[in-house]
Design a protein around this nucleic acid. Structure first.
Lengths: 354, 354
DNA sequence: CGCTCGAATCGAAGCGCTTCAACGACCGTA
DNA sequence: TACGGTCGTTGAAGCGCTTCGATTCGAGCG
């Protein structure tokens, strides 16, 4: 491996000049620059990352804490990670992967000068890591918003707005009784911030629209979906609209609706809240509040980069999800004060899947 | 941030002694060791990764190239990545994430001394990266086996064995006509090594067992599954057994079979080849050759670690997938020389989903 | 004409660690 | 008693880079 000294010798300059050519931190004459660049290319020189980090106290590495739980949507995580990695490269940074399990990982990589900054995903309402992040010198960006976000820089989907938009969409079509098929109980139990916010905003928007509603957590898998649907139906027999905030349960939900001979949207309208490509391989496309995962990843990196040179005020940014209609919603068959509940199959007349 | 000098001063020893205590490379008296360890703890000292890398030419970082294509199973990737990260930590290493897109990424991180070694996933039969890996000084382990694996260290599932076992399982139950629902065409097109090997081994095992067969690539999604099934049926109308090597298509497949009023296993037996948890949230559990993804990740790290201290001979290791029966296979209804094809719904008598 | 100023370059210090050679102390052995 | 050997410890060199003055040179200015 050639060193900066080799390059300097070949170019006939001092090593500090080479350094300045590479960093652009001082002005260099065009001829010198050319000679140095040629030498770099000829030797295939690459600065030694460790030496550079030691001398400059900058590693050009970004730490990313990735959640690897069973109950979070792996697709979305991958989209985040991918975008983060790509965007980081555009800023000449690499990405160091940290897992959730290692308790002291955040401290280890920052005080060991392995990374310059951190991006932490899957933040819970009362996340113990925010205290750590507040204490750490390195800048950090959270993907997700904890209950108390003072002094923290966060970015996330605007779940509250999405839930509100979903409710208003259904209400606008004339639905008077709607249900929320929410995140898995485990997600709620650990108080994932987003799950709570969807639920709260769903309730509020329904109340504001004067719509009757029920909400249920929902285990992924056929059993879970069946149980959750039954619970919703028990609470609101006349349910005609469904907001689903549980991407993994979508295939099972559609299967279950088909089994119960309920057509979408003729018998039930369905709106999902989730990653933009979640409903891609479903048997039927669904209206959705498409969460811009790539955008969130990109913004997270931009925010953290901005904080690497000079302090920037803390800020929480929520990205809106556009409502994309794909034909899974329609006005309810029995508007407003109709008699029988559309969702109870036994009461229905002639429903057959085509 | 305290430095090793601070620790040395507090412990009343030289900095080299501290270094030796930390690395264990020389014998240290118990009392000195205790004093140093106390000083380390009191100061919350963490060695500076860059300085360490510079002095020792070891970064204790592992580069991992993660595929982020649409057509590979994200779940499996995540399992790999997770296990790799966890196992690497057990060896006191961190993980640097590299994406496929960056062409010169492998050279950049190795010659820039960002990583000590590389793990590269999703290897294709004629992968251009193997040439690079051969040329690089840093040790590397491939997950997946290229056509020419000479001089390379690889680890992978034993797809050939899995396909053979799937075929023999069906043949053993008496099925005389079977089909393979394979990877998406895109996967085959880019010559992913594993897709080719499943196909080849399926053919060979079926031939050896004297079983008639057909094989089809299969797009994920309802449309793709429907088309692939139709093609199989066209080629082999009397099909009674299905080997599926396409995890993403499983939900759609089950939905499609249900729609065609084909019961599993009464009308069709199904065996899948895939990640151990792929069939977890399906409406119906499926017999499966469970690919031990975590084990592959672990082995990859162990192999690369072994090669970090001293050269070890190149080696390709294939991990067997156990056949787990979950009730989706049974002897065919019309054994051997029966008349009508079981898969053609029109000819069937009274099939109703229960 | 002498001075200042900016541009271009260089030398050297130093970032925090590892590791080698060397050294003293202490042991057992001849 | 003297001597080689082992154990525990140390000082110093050096890993490859950045960065801070210092230096030189030519241009611009009064």
């Amino acid at each position: 491996m050639p060193t900066i000294t080799d390059v300097a010798r070949l170019a006939g300059v001092s090593s500090s000049t080479v350094s300045y050519v590479l960093s652009g931190k001082r002005s260099i004459s065009a001829t010198t620059r050319a000679r140095v660049e040629k030498a770099v290319a000829d030797l295939g020189y690459r600065p030694h990352a460790g030496a550079r980090a030691l001398a400059s106290s900058r590693t050009n590495v970004l730490g990313v804490v990735v959640p690897l739980r069973a109950d979070v949507n792996v697709n979305v995580i991958m989209q985040f990670v991918h975008t983060i990695a790509t965007t980081a490269r555009q800023h000449d940074h690499d990405v160091l992967l940290l897992t959730q399990e290692e308790d002291a990982g955040l401290q280890r990589v920052t005080s060991g000068a392995l990374v310059d900054a951190l991006i932490v995903m899957d933040i819970e309402a009362e996340d113990p890591r925010v205290a750590v992040l507040r204490a750490i010198a390195a800048p950090s960006v959270l993907i997700g918003v904890p209950r108390d976000d003072r002094g923290l820089t966060c970015v996330d989907f605007d779940f509250e707005d999405a839930a509100r938009a979903a409710v208003e969409h259904l209400a606008g079509l004339g639905h008077r009784v709607i249900g929320l098929l929410g995140s898995p109980p485990e997600t709620l139990r650990r108080r994932a911030a987003y799950a709570e916010r969807v639920r709260g905003s769903f309730e509020a928007a329904a109340a504001a629209a004067g719509v009757a509603r029920a909400a249920q957590a929902c285990e992924v898998g056929t059993e879970g979906v069946r149980a959750a649907l039954a619970a919703l139906r028990a609470e609101q027999p006349e349910l005609t609209g469904l907001v689903v905030h549980n991407e993994a349960a979508l295939p099972a939900l559609l299967a279950e609706l088909a089994r119960a001979k309920l057509r979408v949207p003729a018998d039930v309208s369905v709106v999902t809240i989730g990653a933009s490509d979640a409903s891609l391989h479903l048997p039927q496309p669904l209206d959705s509040l498409d969460m811009p995962a790539r955008e969130v990843g990109r913004v997270a990196v931009e925010m953290v980069m901005a904080r690497l040179d000079g302090p920037v005020a803390a800020e929480t940014r929520l990205l809106a999800a556009p409502l994309v209609e794909r034909g899974s919603t329609a006005p309810p068959r029995r508007p407003a004060r109709g008699a029988a509940g559309a969702v109870t199959p036994s009461r229905r007349r002639s429903a057959r899947p085509r």
